[in-house]
Amino acid sequence: MSTHTAGLTASQLTARYALQLGDDALVYAQRLGEWISRAPQIEEDMALGNIGLDLLGQARVLLSHAGSLDGTGRTEDDLAYFRDERGFRNVHLVEQERSDFGFEMARLLWFSAYQAELYAALVASADEVVQGVALKAVKEVDYHRDHATQWVLRLGDGTAESHERMQDALTRVAPYVAELFDDDPVSVAAAEAGVGARPKSLWDNAFAYVSRVVSQATLVLPEQPTWRSRGGRDGIHSRPMGYLLAEMQHIARSHPGATW
């Protein structure tokens, strides 16, 4: 499927836009859910599970909206469980494998800093559903961002070991950050239609936020990595994505038509 936007109706464009926002939220919800029973404390099992639940809630509304607007009549479940890897439009950051807790906090810090700016902008969306999701999510994401902030501060400004591992985590997340802020054709067209926001326009505030937290945590932002991820918005994914989908989709695909 090509990602150029010429010839799309307004509804189809909004559907594409809702789909990629929904895919980011869905795939990250899946990764966060993996932490339940594996986090360093039971409170973190609940925290990461709850953050994932908020994202899943965003994804359900956005995917339902995409399915109703794109003319295919697909439901949220059709889109989540019966699309193949190439049909997913999420960025690579959210599909990366679960690693240590520092990596998760570095990823959550960047992702929630991005989403906080995104939803703050989408509160003015001309599309009622996108706007409704944003009005709700903007407060939740603020809380996610605060959670990541508290942990990055604690780990960065903690022991020598936690400092070193948090610094290492920032380095490992760095190659996946730029993709969040790339101006992809769908977002640009959606922004021009008053429905979406240009990812580039979100960078300054998100970067300022993360930089402030990182420096308060006595850490440094890594230099621009030589390799960076691309292609998620075109449906080109990295190795972990297939495994993620296999786990997420296999029950639904083993029992097609089953409902609960």
Binding site: E43, E44, M46, A47, N50, I51, L53, D54, Y143, D146, H147, Q150
Partner: peptide
């Protein structure tokens, strides 16, 4: 972590946050 929240059992405002997230969202 610095909000004043009174304990629903004894009424004291000497309370501290253990976790941002509880048993429900």
């Amino acid at each position: 972590s610095v909000r004043q929240v009174a304990c629903p059992r004894c009424g004291s405002s000497a309370t501290e946050e253990v976790s941002h997230f509880g048993s429900t969202a």
